[in-house]
Simulated assay, not measured.
Amino acid sequence: MSPLEMKLEFPAATAPPPPDLSRPDSLFDAAATIAMQVFPDMTLTKITSFDSGVYNQLFELDLASSGGRSGERPILRVATVKKATSDISLESEVATMAYIKLYTTIPVPDVYAYCPNAKNPLGAPFVIISRMVGQALDVAWPQLSYDARVRVIQEYARVTSKLLQCQFPLIGSLHFGTDDSPIVLGDVSLRKMCADIRAEYEDYASWKGPWQDAAQWLKASLEDELQFMTKDSLKCQSWNDQVLVLDIDTIWPIAQRIIPELLNKWTPLVASDKWSKGPFYLGHADLSFANVMVDKDGSITGVVDWEMSSTMPLWNVVCCPPWAEDIELCDSFTFQIVYLDELGRLGLSDDIIDVARHDGWRRDYADG
């Protein structure tokens, strides 16, 4: 299915009120209208809350065929009011998954349809995707055998090796282009760009990239935070109360002192290696326990939530996953060795494996 066929547009000129995502039954009529357009031979019979986060709410759609037989059970992901009425990160995510399906064998959801703005029956940006088989790793891990856990680490290394086959000259995010270039590299796509609180700042768009090296990328991100902090502390307090639930009076003076130091001292150090100049590689941005699906044997059956993905320096993609480093100390050392050995078995060069072994601190700095 082409991007034009996946993207839905609705005739309404204005968006309806934001949905009450805490009441799935209140979404039924709107979801049924959309399902009728996406699955013309199926009927929505039930909508069930599946999972939730700060930025998105997930629902499972029970669909039945015209004969009453149960059929597809796709996932409807709806943006929460923490985002603005236009969700650029969603459109970039769909483009990224299309690219991954085209150029790798990494298992990602099928996209049935999406709408990147709120002008639809739901009153919020949404995407309908296939449900991946298996369990999220955060649920499955405690029940996995030791051998299955080792297999998870090995499979993660294989996912990494496939991402390293996707090389780019700049740091940015993937977007849909034209027929001649259906997927192109452009502005970086982050959730915070979709926040209503930032939408009113006209100069906010000045740092979106793409960038030629990691120093420009890190510097732009920190400068954006400084700009945002100095705009309106009350608005920052409001955003903080909704999203972070931290004491702004405590963190505000610390942030004002630390961010300039990070900008002027640490960023040049982090980006001083040769890999910070490129090439750059497609990265997930949040390969956490919750976004990796596995079966009972430890095989990875899906990688989900590609929102905010972008091209990144080598050290932001190849290093051992943070969750493997947070496991009990003895297992952590073992799993890191398993991961590095698997990268070698897959044919990655000694230079790249050396980055995976030693440069996790650069990755942690960029992620922080």
Rank of each mutant, 00 (worst) to 15 (best):
L282K: 07
E325Q: 15
D110V: 10
V303Q: 05
L63H: 06
W361K: 06
D249T: 02
F333R: 11
R69Y: 05
M193Q: 15
R158N: 09
A12D: 15
D241I: 12
G68K: 03
S86N: 05
L44Y: 10
L246E: 14
A35K: 04
L218A: 15
Q154F: 03
S66P: 04
Q57F: 05
Q37N: 12
T33H: 07
D241L: 15
F168Y: 14
M132I: 07
K101F: 01
S161Y: 02
V338P: 05
M97C: 11
E200D: 11
V150G: 06
P3Y: 06
P11M: 08
T334S: 13
D249M: 00
W211L: 07
L61R: 05
G67P: 00
I197P: 04
D138S: 07
D213V: 03
E328G: 05
A366G: 02
I47E: 11
M193G: 08
I153N: 04
M6F: 07
P125A: 09
G134C: 04
A30L: 10
E307V: 10
I258G: 03
Y114N: 00
T14D: 08
K83F: 06
T250F: 00
D62I: 01
D359C: 04
T178K: 07
D232G: 13
T14F: 10
L122Q: 02
A366D: 07
Q336I: 12
R23G: 04
A199R: 14
D273M: 07
I327W: 02
G177C: 05
Y201G: 03
G344M: 10
D147G: 09
A64V: 13
